[in-house]
Design a protein around this nucleic acid. Structure first.
Length: 795
DNA sequence: GATTTACGCCTTTTT
DNA sequence: GGCGTAAATC
């Protein structure tokens, strides 16, 4: 019966939306947009166009906002304006972004505008997060249970591999990644499994259609949704249940959308339906920054907005506040070569600024050396600068990272596996998922023998086969099989022990917190000892620390009053970009992940034909235009100075690997007078090459002192792989942070916390590996913190 | 069942 | 060149 208990709806995970007040419509019905604004401060620092956008009344509006023109500013100010003028109560405003990072920033800025004493907050969130919230409340209408799981790409891949195996389909013929991306593509275009072959004819369409159908069926049976489903199912509910649509549409009277150029079909449908009752859709976007076509983003959404939302007001923001005129001219000159655009010309009152610098290197290594030495000079001159190295593909980060580590320059990188993507963290979360949604077969298979507990391949096959034949979840098969006398004793014993463990956790589902549950899982499974015998000490340490940090995160989530599902949802929807430290002085990231960010100085690296534009995205005009927009996005991240680097002799793989590369065509599209060093891009071999002997840097190889410094993170690195390199950096940083804040804390001490402010330690107790501190903060009240993670400063 | 070796691939990826 | 997966070993 434990399964039945676990399936019952816990807490009030779904009660995220307050009941709408009866007088809501009256509030909104008042004419609030005429007359003298009572709150000039919200409008004060806006230019006329921004102000016009912020003050827009009801009905659809499209703000075409060029790079650096105050896009976020317009949205945040408009939210504040609507609230201040009484046009809407905070809780009736919905602002949607694409990234958690953007949502967080927006929330903070709105908060700053409105001040603290608000009872309700506007809902500022991502599309996916919004859908999850809606689904946790409404999904039973379409036959799922409220405690559904969210399948990330890794889960999807596991499921797909399982399906291919069950169906005896070769992975060679239908590579899981590829197949999934086709399915995703279909979903992003609102094409169901049943309609697949009709809409996307191809020699393998029939097979794909079948696989797609099975995949969807399996998801449903696992009570699971993939990322695309989150949008699709939410949109479906709003379509099929007009009363639900009207409820949400009445509730969210004002809808604001950031980065509208990146919306896809399901997102568009969602907006249409949410706006059904009022049409108050205020979207901000820039067609020149549409760079997610490959993920289903439809640039037509922004190009056709006026057609789709009749009577839409269109406002252009063309004044740029970020960059120098030179940088704008460079970027503008490149993107002007595109045809699929509405056309904007950015201008700025900022100074003309320095010309950009183009530099050609004889190898990737030399490129990195040049860039890093420039960075050292720049930081010497302006230590407060924030500098970014941007590149088209993640593979390019390696040479820069190597050198930055060697030179001891701290940097932040997007592109490694984020916290919630770590194997050990995912394992732990999979345990939770099974406990809270026992139908989640993918999660169950992930942990059934992790750590190993004698449930081998044969046992697992028996389980999956039976589950498949009978159309029931594996957890149910497990219960019968664990008691089946026909099963060999040893296997049965292992299954029974695992089953009992699950049973005991499921029984506790309503009585203990996620953090306690995780602790219990760690203890019963002895998970940490599995991590202890890893190849390197460094790896084991880092993995164990991650597991502990997860427990801590669950603990903190609970402190904030989050439900277990809110915690799990956040884990599912978080990305490594969220962890990128925007205050780092040197940032390494792909141009894609740099969108929405800005830096004082930008190095745009790897500007070669085949790399940028990428050879695999140069097959059509559309693809090439997207590459060009990408280049535009990269260039416009820079405030003050832009560096462009390329190398004809980068080691590249695939066909034509040993051919020298030509400089990127985007370099040719820049007016020569705006860039120094461009002329060097003419040929790929010239006399200067003699000045660059290969591997001049051998003497820089720092010899690791061998005298018992194994635990010392200060020793020079000799890591082979990127992962090792990053683990090393992580440890070095942790060591530095630890050294800076290692005073022994005691009860009665006054401390300062970065978020909670000043407080006094009431109690300090050890619990196993952790030291828990009870602290009363004057501002934030009483909190319980883990000493290791709380970044406390003794006062 | 775990560890080792071989093979094949190789964009971007807000969620 | 390096990584992840898959068969091939111990």
């Amino acid at each position: 019966m434990s399964i039945a208990i676990a399936m019952s709806i816990r807490n009030n995970a779904a009660e995220f939306i307050a009941t709408p007040p009866h007088h809501m419509v009256e509030v909104v019905g008042a004419r609030v947009f005429v007359g003298i604004p009572k709150h000039m401060d919200v409008l004060a620092k806006l230019n006329p166009q921004q102000r016009q956008a912020v003050e827009h009344g009801r009905g659809p509006a499209l703000v075409l906002a060029g790079a650096g023109s105050g896009k976020t500013r317009v949205i945040t100010h408009r939210v504040a304006y609507l609230i201040r003028n009484g046009a809407a109560r905070p809780e009736n405003i919905l602002a949607v972004t694409f990234t958690n990072k953007a949502a967080k920033e927006m929330r903070e800025r709105i908060h700053a505008l409105l001040g603290p004493s608000r009872t309700a907050e506007p809902l500022v969130t991502t599309f996916h997060s919004f859908c999850v919230r809606l689904l946790r409340r409404e999904i039973e209408r379409i036959g799922y249970k409220r405690d559904f799981s969210i399948y990330d790409t890794d889960d999807q891949r596991r499921l797909m591999k399982q399906i291919l195996e069950d169906e005896k389909i070769s992975e060679k013929e239908f590579p899981p990644r590829d197949t999934l991306s086709r399915i995703s593509h279909a979903k992003n275009h609102n094409v169901s499994a049943a309609a697949y072959a009709g809409r996307f004819p191809s020699p393998t369409a029939e097979d794909l259609q079948r696989i797609y159908g099975i995949y969807d069926g399996r998801l449903r049976r696992a009570n699971a949704l993939d990322f695309d489903d989150l949008l699709l199912k939410a949109a479906e509910i709003l379509k099929r249940f007009p009363e639900v649509r009207d409820y949400y549409s009445d509730w969210y009277r004002y809808i604001l959308v950031d980065e509208y150029q990146d919306t896809n079909r399901p997102q568009y449908d969602l907006l249409q339906r949410l706006a059904a009752r009022h049409g108050n859709v205020f979207v901000v976007g820039d067609e020149d920054q549409s760079i997610y076509r490959f993920r289903g983003a439809n640039i037509q959404n922004i190009l056709n907005f006026e057609r789709d939302f009749p009577g839409a007001k269109v406002i252009k923001l063309e004044q740029n506040y970020r960059s120098t005129q030179t940088i704008l001219n460079i970027a503008g000159g490149v993107v002007a070569n595109n045809t699929e655009r509405k056309g904007k010309v950015l201008w700025t009152e900022n100074p003309r600024g320095e010309v950009a610098t183009c530099h050609r290197s004889h190898s990737a290594r030399a490129e990195a050396e040049w860039v890093v030495s420039r960075i050292q000079d720049l930081l010497k001159e302006n230590p407060e600068d924030r500098i970014a190295i941007l590149y088209r593909t993640n593979a390019l980060s390696r040479s820069f990272e190597d050198l930055l580590v060697q030179e001891g320059i701290p940097y932040a990188v997007v592109g490694s596996v984020g916290f919630f993507g770590r194997m050990e963290v995912k394992d732990m979360l999979a345990y939770l998922r099974v406990i809270y949604n026992p139908e989640d077969d993918v999660a169950l298979l992930r942990i059934i023998n992790t750590p190993t507990r004698g449930i081998g391949k044969t046992a697992v096959e028996l389980l999956t086969r039976t589950a498949l034949d009978r159309g029931i979840p594996i957890s149910q098969v497990l219960r019968t099989l664990a008691q089946d006398p026909q099963l060999a004793g040893r296997a049965r014993g292992a299954l029974a022990r695992f089953q009992e463990m699950l049973e005991s956790w499921m029984a506790k589902v309503d009585s203990i917190s996620a953090a306690d549950m995780l602790e219990d899982i760690l203890e019963k499974t002895d998970y940490k000892s599995m991590l202890e015998d890893r190849e390197t000490e460094l790896e084991a340490e880092s993995r164990i620390a991650n597991v502990e940090e997860l427990v801590h995160a669950a603990f903190e989530a609970e402190e904030r009053g989050e439900t277990i599902f809110e915690f799990l949802d956040r884990a599912s929807l978080s990305s490594e970009l969220d962890q990128f430290d925007p205050n780092a002085h040197v940032g390494l990231l792909t141009v894609h992940s740099a969108k929405g960010l800005e830096f004082d100085v930008v190095f745009l690296a790897g500007l070669e034909e085949g790399l940028f534009p990428h050879s695999q995205s140069s097959n059509s005009k559309e693809e090439l235009e997207e590459e060009r927009r990408l280049c535009y996005v990269g260039m416009t991240r820079a405030r003050r100075k832009l560096y462009l680097t390329w190398s004809p002799f980068r080691r590249n793989f695939g066909p034509g690997a040993d051919m020298p590369s030509l400089p990127s065509r985007f370099l040719d599209e820049i007016s020569p007078e705006l860039v120094e060093g461009l002329d060097l891009g003419e040929g790929y071999v010239d006399e200067e090459d003699e000045d660059y002997p290969e591997d001049t840097e051998d003497e820089d190889e720092i010899v690791v002192s061998t005298a018992g410094d194994r635990s010392d993170a200060g020793s020079a690195p000799s890591p082979r792989s990127l992962a090792e390199l990053r683990a090393y950096v992580e440890k070095r940083n942790a060591a530095a942070a630890g050294a800076a804040s290692s005073p022994i804390l005691k009860s009665g001490m006054r401390v300062r916390h970065p978020q909670f402010g000043d407080g006094i330690i009431l109690n300090r107790e050890s619990t196993g590996n952790d030291v828990k501190l009870t602290i009363t903060f004057s501002r934030a009240g009483r909190k319980i913190l883990i000493e290791r993670y709380a970044k406390l400063k003794v006062l």
